[in-house]
Amino acid sequence: MLESSFWQGLLSVDPKDVSSSDVLRDCCDGKVFVSNTFFQENPSCFKLVLYQDAFEVVNPLGSAKKKHKVLAVYFSLLNISPHARSNVDHMQLVLLCREKDFKDFGHDKVFSELLTDLKILEENGIMMADKTVVKGALYCIAGDNLGSHCIGGFTENFSSSVYLCRYCLLTRTDFQGADPAVCGPQRTPENYRSATEHLEREDVSEVHGVKFRSVFNSLQNFDVCTPGMPPCLGHDVFEGVLSYDLAVYLRYFINTKKWFTYTHLNRRIKQFKYKGTDASSKPCEVSPKALKLGGQAVQNWNLLRLLPLIIGDKVQNPQ
Rank of each mutant, 00 (worst) to 15 (best):
Y262C: 05
N191A: 11
K211I: 12
E206D: 13
H208Q: 14
C284K: 14
V162K: 14
V215G: 00
V224Y: 02
N191K: 10
A178E: 13
H198R: 15
Y252S: 13
G177P: 00
V210W: 09
P283K: 08
T171M: 05
D179W: 06
A297Q: 08
S214C: 07
N300R: 02
N266K: 03
Y163D: 00
E200I: 09
A195D: 15
S287E: 08
N266Y: 07
T263M: 03
N266L: 06
T226Y: 10
V162L: 02
A290E: 10
S214Q: 08
Q296S: 08
V237R: 01
S281C: 09
L246S: 08
Q176V: 03
S161L: 00
K211W: 00
G276W: 01
S205N: 09
N191Y: 06
R251W: 10
T263W: 07
Y252C: 10
S218F: 05
G294H: 06
E285K: 12
C232H: 11
V224G: 02
T196A: 10
L291Q: 05
Y274K: 05
T261L: 07
D236Y: 12
L246M: 15
K211S: 14
P189Q: 09
W259P: 06
Y167T: 03
S218H: 12
E190M: 07
H264E: 15
E200V: 02
T173I: 06
S281L: 11
F238A: 11
V162E: 10
R267K: 13
K258S: 13
L164N: 03
L242N: 14
Y274L: 05
V237K: 07
C168K: 02
T196I: 04
A181C: 09
V162A: 09
C232P: 00
Q186T: 13
T171P: 01
R213S: 09
Q186W: 05
H264I: 05
L293T: 02
G234K: 00
N191E: 08
D245T: 15
R172E: 05
Y249G: 12
R193W: 00
R267L: 12
N266R: 06
F260N: 10
L246N: 13
D236S: 11
S159A: 13
D203F: 12
